[in-house]
């Protein structure tokens, strides 16, 4: 089941929280939703989860509009602050959510047991939710979102406030689930997006500013390949001028004169790595390092969202 967001706009007073955005999420895809605080991520997710009404534009879930169909059953939603009924025991809570979602009555007990196992809640299962640590509460939040085996998962910052081990566990969980489901999740943690998502969507001030895989985003933001090379056995000035004279090179900088390290920026869309290698072979220099230099996702994010 896919999600199609079409020209979605949401206005709070004079302010546009979401401004005419369109995107789609394909079945089996994990889409990372990025953006600074207040960019409109949560509002968009609330609309997909059908908590907020769609006023302008439309959202299609499996081809049906959320405006005239109740499609909540298809969606598993974990709200931003992970609200739970703290006074309830975990099992009772999950059973309650399962019956709210209309899960077949006779299968509820088994399903709850299964989710408790999948989410690693086995040790804690007889506790009240209020007695759990934050990480376990988050797992209960995920368990309740997935209890009715929805085809679509909307997770609003599922890993905030967790320790690094828990983050990796939750991330793996999402990754495993994402194979069969359509997942849209938002986060502030950029390496997480790269590790988990098939595709990245960055929004800023209610508008989409980037859409693509991590590597396409890098290429878009950068447009040209950058290499860090270390060339030994040659004279620095000689090396610099020879590289500069190459057809595929735009510029070259000396990074470390002592270690003969250089930064080579290729011309747009013409990778210079082969030519560099050829040059060194011709001149009998030795390349001891050739590192394609990647822009960090953080830099792309900052470029796109600060202006």
């Amino acid at each position: 089941m896919d999600i199609k967001v079409l020209n979605l706009t949401k206005q709070y007073g004079a302010q546009k929280a979401v401004d005419n955005i369109s995107f789609d999420v394909k079945p089996g895809e994990i889409l990372g939703f990025l953006g600074p605080n207040g960019a409109g991520k949560t509002t968009t997710m609330k609309m997909i989860a059908q908590y907020l009404d769609v006023e302008h534009g439309d959202i299609l879930i499996g081809g049906k509009s959320v405006k005239d169909n109740n499609l909540k059953r298809q969606i598993g939603y974990l709200p931003e602050s992970n609200p739970l009924y703290y006074e309830m025991p975990i099992m009772d809570y999950l059973e309650y959510v399962a019956s709210l979602q209309g899960y077949p009555k006779e299968k509820i007990k088994d399903r709850v047991r299964e989710m408790i196992k999948v989410c690693g809640l086995d040790v804690e299962k007889h506790k009240l939710i209020s007695e759990l640590s934050k990480g376990y509460k988050q797992r209960v939040g995920l368990a309740q979102a997935m209890i009715h085996d929805p085809e679509i998962l909307i997770l609003d910052e599922p890993t905030t406030g967790l320790d690094p081990n828990q983050i990796i566990e939750i991330r793996d969980l999402i990754k495993n689930l994402g194979r069969q489901k359509t997942v849209l999740f938002s986060t502030h943690i950029l390496p997480e997006v790269e590790a988990t998502c098939d595709r990245i969507l960055i929004i800023n001030k209610g508008k989409i500013v980037a859409d693509g895989t991590a590597s396409t985003l890098r290429q878009q933001s950068q447009g040209q390949d950058v290499y860090h090379v270390r060339i030994e056995d040659g004279n620095i000035d000689d090396i610099v001028t020879s590289i500069r004279n190459m057809a595929s090179v735009e510029s070259v900088n000396v990074l470390d004169a002592g270690k003969h390290k250089f930064e080579v920026v290729s011309k747009p869309n013409i990778p210079s790595n082969r030519h560099l290698f050829q040059l060194c072979v011709d001149r009998k220099w030795v390349i001891t390092e050739l590192i394609p230099f990647e822009t960090k996702l953080e830099d792309i994010f900052r470029d796109l969202t600060m202006n």
């Binding site: 609330k46 989860a49 059908q50 908590y51 109740n70 909540k72 059953r73 969606i75 939603y77 709200p79 602050s81 609200p83 739970l84 009924y85 703290y86 959510v97 709210l100 979602q101 209309g102 309740q144 009715h148």
Partner: peptide
């Protein structure tokens, strides 16, 4: 206040 209303209303209920 606790936000559980959001959790509740996004279930398959009206």
């Amino acid at each position: 206040k606790t936000g559980t209303i959001e959790m509740l209303l996004t279930k398959a209920v009206t």
